[in-house]
Each structure stands twice: as structure tokens, then as C-alpha cells.
């Protein structure tokens, strides 16, 4: 397939309309994803409203440094994919491949840091569903709810990061193989939409699980 011209599907008049339809489809998908995460945010908000002190102590127990490092990693990933899109549109395909691959790498680093954080919690006897020695020493049931929310919400977010890493790697490979070029930059733009969405979700999770720790 020629890198210069993306294939025009028969039901579109031209490439710009095809690109717009693809972007609209991705936005609709992201809208449904927002509603999915809203259920998890509602779970957190409801129980935090009911058990503010335990949730505050839970946040204070989490590792602020690792959470902040992950925030910078994801934000840097978003910067890299934005630069990759700019580079591809400007005709610098090799640079776009490199930047997209670096974005995927940022996602991998995020997952490694998140894995280290989960490992630290599990070594303390904190497991999902209120299992582990930590909950014997802290029998208040809200502790189990907080850490179930922590594992559940950050876990679903990590699944989204993993999917994003796979898609970014795939797109970088496609660009390297000259199947996506400047004329089909909208395909990279669609991938970047997904990655920015994952970043936005984390920008809300970071304060909820790492920052809101100060006693009233």
C-alpha cells in the first residue's frame, strides 16, 4: 500500500469526510468510556462521602512519590504523541515513528512503576476485597472498601494504558512500514485521542488516590 494516499472507502465522498467520521467514531467511543469510568468515580465519591477519615488515611498511606512520578510519565507520553502527530503532518515520518514508539515506552514505564507500587502494597498484606494481614490489624470495613476501590480503579486504568501501549506500538510499526504517512495522519490523530483520554482519567485519579491526604 502506498504511504501517500489512504484508501477511500466507497461510502465517503473524500478523505476529509472519511477522517471526520473516524474522529467522530473515536469521540463516541471515548464518551462511552467516560461513562464507564463515571461508575467507578461514583463508587469512590459515594464511599468517600460516607467514610472521609478512612479514605483520607488511605490516601496518606499511598506513595505520593510514585503517584507523582506516574503523573509526569503519562503527561510526558501525551506530549510525545502530540509531537509525533505534529511531525507526521509536517512530513517527518521517521521522527513521528520515533516519538510514537517513545510514547509507548512511557506507557510501559508507567505500568512498571504501578506494578512496583502494587507489589509494595501486597508485601504489606493489602489485597483487593479486604484480604490480607493489613485488614486484620485495621478491621474497620471502610479500609477494605478504600483499597478495593484503589485496586479496581487503578487496575482498570492500567488495562487502558496496556491497550494504549499495544495500539501505539502497532501504529508506530505501521508508520515504519509506510502504511501510515502524512496524508493519513488522521489515523495517528485517532490513536492520540485515546492516549489523551487515558491521561485525563489519570489527572483525576492522582489527586483522589495520592493528594487528598491532609487532616481537616
Amino acid at each position: 500500500m502506498n504511504v501517500a494516499v489512504p484508501k477511500l472507502q466507497h461510502h465517503f465522498e473524500d478523505i476529509p469526510k472519511q477522517a471526520h467520521a473516524a474522529r467522530l467514531g473515536m469521540w463516541l467511543f471515548l464518551g462511552s468510556e467516560a461513562l464507564f469510568f463515571s461508575g467507578l468515580f461514583t463508587f469512590y465519591a459515594g464511599y468517600r462521602a460516607h467514610h472521609p477519615e478512612i479514605f483520607r488515611l488511605g490516601v496518606a498511606h499511598n506513595d505520593l512519590v510514585l503517584g507523582t512520578v506516574n503523573t509526569f510519565i503519562l503527561l510526558t507520553g501525551s506530549l510525545l504523541i502530540s509531537l509525533a502527530l505534529w511531525a507526521l503532518r509536517a512530513g517527518h515520518r521517521t521522527l513521528a515513528v520515533l516519538l510514537t514508539a517513545c510514547t509507548a515506552l512511557a506507557g510501559v514505564v508507567y505500568l512498571v512503576v504501578k506494578g512496583a507500587e502494587w507489589g509494595r502494597h501486597m508485601s504489606e498484606g493489602i489485597f483487593p476485597g479486604g484480604r490480607g494481614d493489613f485488614f486484620v490489624e485495621n478491621p474497620e470495613p471502610a479500609w477494605a472498601v478504600f483499597y478495593t476501590a484503589y485496586y479496581g480503579i487503578t487496575g482498570f486504568h492500567a488495562i487502558h494504558v496496556t491497550v494504549g501501549v499495544c495500539i501505539l506500538g502497532w501504529t508506530a510499526w505501521w508508520m515504519h512500514r509506510e502504511r501510515v504517512g502524512p496524508a493519513a495522519a488522521y489515523k495517528l490523530a485517532i490513536v492520540s485521542l485515546y492516549w489523551h483520554f487515558v491521561d485525563i482519567v489519570w489527572l483525576f485519579l492522582w489527586p483522589l488516590f495520592y493528594l487528598l491526604r491532609n487532616p481537616a
Partner: peptide, 20 residues
């Protein structure tokens, strides 16, 4: 789409918290 989706998120979260 970009306006309606966050509005529904806000609606769901805020009404639940008010209920609690």
C-alpha cells in the same frame, strides 16, 4: 459528544453523593 459525556459523568457522580 465532548460536552455531553462529561455532563453525564458530573450528573451521575453529584446525584449519588447528594443521595449518600
Amino acid at each position: 459528544v465532548a460536552v455531553i459525556a462529561p455532563l453525564f459523568v458530573l450528573l451521575l457522580v453529584s446525584l449519588t453523593v447528594v443521595d449518600v
